[in-house]
Computed example of a mutant assay.
Amino acid sequence: MIYDIQKASVLKRASGFLLDIILIAVLAVGFMALLSLICDYDGHYNSYKNEIESAQNTVIEKYKNEHGINLGISQEEYEQLGDEEKKTFDEYAKLANEDMKNILLASDTYKKESSLVLSLSLMMTSVGIFLAMLVLEFIIPVCFKNGQTIGKKVFGIAVMHTNGVRVRPLSMFVRSILGMYVFEIMVPVLIGLMMFFGTLSVLIGTIVLVAICVLQLAIFISTRNTTRS
């Protein structure tokens, strides 16, 4: 079927897109919370944190007894130190960090729990977003027809081919799952997680994320002719 329709304005498209992103985020968080309960994520994360806190306390106690310096002071207490005291504190803090790393690396519990926390975080994030995308960007548009998500339905936008032919379910699946999920959402999310867990430099991650945002903006503008109202 061919429709005689008009191009949707950029403002309409942006508004519909923003609403869809909000709904995806809300639903994804719900799915992730459910997966968290199933996998006992909180239990593993608490065990992971306890190992770190235990190592910190061990190192703090060691340096207090052996060197007479308290590495557990607050930021306010640190600011009140003199320049020479700060220099001494920083030197011991560097040594303490190395000691703490060695303690953690020698702990089988830490290695196990840290690996589980990272794996579960990636799994819950990817699966949660996938399920949210599947529902909101594929199942609902198939039900609404014309490629309409909830955001597009609210703002009266339909997605179709440039020749006016309605988008078929297979095309919607490729667009939403292979396109939006894999490249537009999961790549930035994975980069963010890698930055959070320290496996990727913050500077490099930020540069990549900015580049992705610029690319997405360029694609958004260049494809304005394929969205109709």
Rank of each mutant, 00 (worst) to 15 (best):
M1I: 12
K7N: 14
A14V: 15
I24K: 02
V26K: 03
G30P: 06
A33K: 12
Y41I: 07
N46T: 12
E51R: 04
V59E: 00
I60Y: 13
K64P: 06
E66C: 12
H67G: 07
G68H: 08
E79A: 15
G82E: 07
D83C: 05
T88C: 12
E91I: 15
K94E: 11
N97V: 08
K101W: 10
N102W: 05
S107H: 04
K112N: 12
L118M: 15
S121H: 04
M123P: 02
M124Y: 00
T125Q: 02
S126W: 02
F130K: 02
F130T: 03
L136G: 05
F138S: 06
I139V: 15
G147C: 12
Q148T: 00
T149H: 02
T149Y: 00
I150C: 05
K152R: 10
V154E: 04
F155K: 04
G156V: 00
G156D: 00
V159E: 03
H161T: 08
T162V: 11
G164M: 10
G164W: 02
G164L: 11
P169Q: 01
F173K: 02
V174H: 10
Y181E: 02
E184F: 13
I191W: 03
G192D: 01
V202E: 12
V208Q: 03
L215W: 09
S222H: 11
R224E: 15
T226S: 14
S229C: 09
